[in-house]
Amino acid sequence: MDWVEMRVQTAPESEEAVFNLLLELGAQGTATVGSSLLKNRESQYGEWFDEAEESETGEEKLWIAGYIKAEDFQPSLVEKLKKRVENLTVYGLNPGPAEVEARRVSEEFWEKAWKEYYHPTRITDRLTVKPLWESYRPEPGETVIELDPGMAFGTGTHPTTVLSMKLLEETLQPGQRVIDVGCGSGILSIASARLGAETVLAVDLDPRAVENAERNVRLNDLQHRIRVREGDLLQDVDQTADLVVSNILAEIILQFTADLPRVLRRGGVFIASGIIAEKEKEVVRAVHDAGLTVMKSLREGDWVALAARS
Results as ranks from 00 to 15, higher is better:
D259G: 12
A250C: 06
Q28T: 10
L222C: 11
A277T: 08
I275E: 03
V90M: 02
G150H: 04
T10L: 06
V304Y: 00
E214A: 15
R194W: 11
Q223V: 10
M6C: 10
L234G: 00
L25C: 05
D236V: 13
L254A: 07
R84V: 00
E134S: 10
Y91M: 07
V244C: 06
R266I: 13
F49V: 14
A241V: 03
M6K: 02
L22E: 01
A290S: 14
G34C: 13
A17Y: 00
K166D: 08
L201K: 03
N216W: 05
G301V: 06
A250H: 02
T121P: 01
W303F: 05
T10W: 11
D125A: 15
E60R: 13
R137A: 15
S297F: 07
V294N: 01
E142I: 03
T161R: 00
Y67Q: 08
A202D: 07
T293N: 15
K296F: 05
G58I: 07
E107N: 09
G182D: 08
T257L: 11
V85T: 00
E214V: 13
E79F: 03
T57H: 11
P97L: 13
V181M: 10
W303A: 05
H158P: 01
M295D: 10
R285I: 11
E56L: 14
A277E: 14
P120G: 10
W114Y: 09
L93K: 00
L205N: 14
L233S: 07
S192K: 07
T30E: 09
Y67K: 05
T89E: 11
